[in-house]
Amino acid sequence: MHGVRRARETREVRTARRERERAMLSTYLALTDDILSRKKNKDWSRDAFDLTTQLLSTHPSVTNPEFYTVWNYRRHILTNGIFPRSSPEEIKELLNDDLAMTAKVLKVHPKVYWIWNHRRWCLEHIPDSPDYANNQAWRRSAWERELFIVEKMLDADSRNFLAWDYRRYVLASMPVRRSEKAEIAYTTKKIEANFSNFSAWHQRTKVLSSLWASGEVDRTLSLHKEFELVQNAMFTLPEDQSAWLYHRWLIGSGDNKAILEREINLIQTLLDEQPDSKWCMESLVTYKRLLLDNHLPTGSQEKTTAINQCRTLLGQLEEIDPMRRQRYWEMGAQLKV
């Protein structure tokens, strides 16, 4: 029961509620009993199919889209009973109907895994077009609509991780793949709408990695732009974790000394402006340690200075972020000259 406010139910109220629910309960039990009996008897009829529609989506009072056994049964009816006597056009129509139905159910239950699952099954069972030449367009339309639905779901809740996962699945499965650059543009749009949306930043890490790996985008050039983008978020709201996490991804293992030093200086500027910023201090410690480990010669004066700076910062962090004090203390203890 996520986010349902507590309400005290007196004995009278409970009795009254059960009285009210009695009719619904018997309807529900009769409907589920009918469906489960038909299922046991391997009833693959259209009647049985319609009963599952009622229970999962259309019944006026007792729908239950979380009853996955009934989704399973529905799919069995389709593959065993209905598809064998249907033309490809009819099958496509049936699947389209199911996609429309689940789209409606999803609006009310955006986080029910079984519904997303059923859509996926539908998409994967769209038959080949009888007209071979037309096959591509026939499938393509279904998948593009899917991307539209998932965007609608992300408009409603831009952090819905099921929707993001499903989006990645759709992008990877579309018969005509979309350019990954288009996906970068989509994440930019989501980030501009709300840069505290870490899901969008995360998606960017995945898509950019792929674009860099394929050589489609020049890593050095795009890194520069990404730093600029994320710096806007860091400076606008230094307490927002999303930006700092993304920045940390951009820094990576810190093998580029120039970038490391540039970003350390910039964060220092931000810290000077906002002297109580925990994320500035935390990131400075992390990046200075990368500098220590990767770039500063052992025993050098620079190294000693950097270590001392880290110690000071960790001391400050223990003060301003006492919840995580032990971690800062341990990090300080690990610093060796």
Binding site: A193, Q231, N232, F235, T269, L270, E273
Partner: peptide, 14 residues
């Protein structure tokens, strides 16, 4: 969001 997208300098944004 407007500040994030604006053309202000980083320090001005802050």
């Amino acid at each position: 969001g407007d500040i994030f997208k604006s053309t202000l300098s980083l320090i001005e944004k802050r």
